[in-house]
Design a protein around this nucleic acid. Structure first.
Lengths: 154, 154
DNA sequence: TATTGTTATACTCTATAACTATA
DNA sequence: TATAGTTATAGAGTATAACAATA
């Protein structure tokens, strides 16, 4: 009922829209979609991975990973190679060009962080971050509760 | 270069992911997708509108609006009727059931706002909101600049 | 001529189910 | 038996281009 809460939520929602737009724009310049960029990012963090691991990390189906890897392989951003010990599995790794692009993504992300928060004082950033941490915790609880409720629909 | 900025951005990005998940979950219970819910929401705010107006508000192609309206009409959430003065145009409006659902969406949104910010003090919400307003302003400038640069590629 | 909405076509992301090869 | 990845199929969101009806 407090209008300040609704205003704050509206601001957060606007932020999500603008961020998605900004990031899609950056990725588009590299010819990447958000889903494909996400996969590259996971590879950058985890190193060469099987497709099952990628599906789990991205929280999508194995089938979907096949498609994303197909597209990224065609663009020479990732390469498939046989798993050394499990002959069922495939190891997906970044190519040199994939490494270059993910490095640029990391750089762009740092620029974005600086652009958004660079004008704020250290205390202000800290306060914002602390508040956000609390909000995130509450949201996680709400998401978990909703999942429980829908799984057990009394 | 300040790690606090990157941490804050990571928190914001996590928030966007969790929010999208939470909202998709709520909508899913109504059998709605985010795109269709967005169209309903615009209709709730603006009242009956032509498809061109909807395409503009949603920032998607006219073709896309045709598809979304087709689906929502099949679910009896919106209805097409002839425009009173322009015989080329169609007016799309919420049905009674569409009104019920958008009212529930508004209610859910208020619940979400209360859940996220209800535990915070008035001052804390205000401070958060003020900081967020500044961040939003800076982001808008960055998005606008990026659009200029890509339109006029030196 | 310009605008509104549709048909035609295509690409991406997503999912489930059935299947092959391997563990 | 169970797991890794693929093929088959399908639905949703998105786009551009061509077109009909109307302004």
């Amino acid at each position: 009922m407090d209008p300040r809460h609704e205003v704050a939520l509206d601001q957060v929602l606007e932020l999500t829209v603008l961020l998605a737009e900004d990031m899609a724009g950056s990725l588009g310049r590299d010819g990447l979609t958000p889903a494909r960029a996400h996969l590259l990012w996971v590879l950058r963090e985890r190193g060469p991975s099987t497709q099952v691991v990628l599906a789990d990390a991205l929280r999508v189906s194995a089938r979907n990973v096949t498609g994303l890897v197909d597209a990224l392989e065609a663009a020479d951003l990732v390469a498939r190679r046989p798993h050394p010990t499990d002959r069922r599995a495939t190891l997906v790794g970044l190519t040199e060009q994939g490494g270059t692009i993910t490095a640029r993504m990391a750089h762009d992300k740092a620029l974005l962080a600086a652009g958004l928060f660079g004008g704020l004082g250290t205390e202000q950033v800290q306060t914002f971050s602390d508040t956000l941490a609390g909000v995130l915790d509450r949201l996680k609880v709400m998401v978990a509760d909703a999942a429980d409720t829908s799984r057990e629909p009394t």
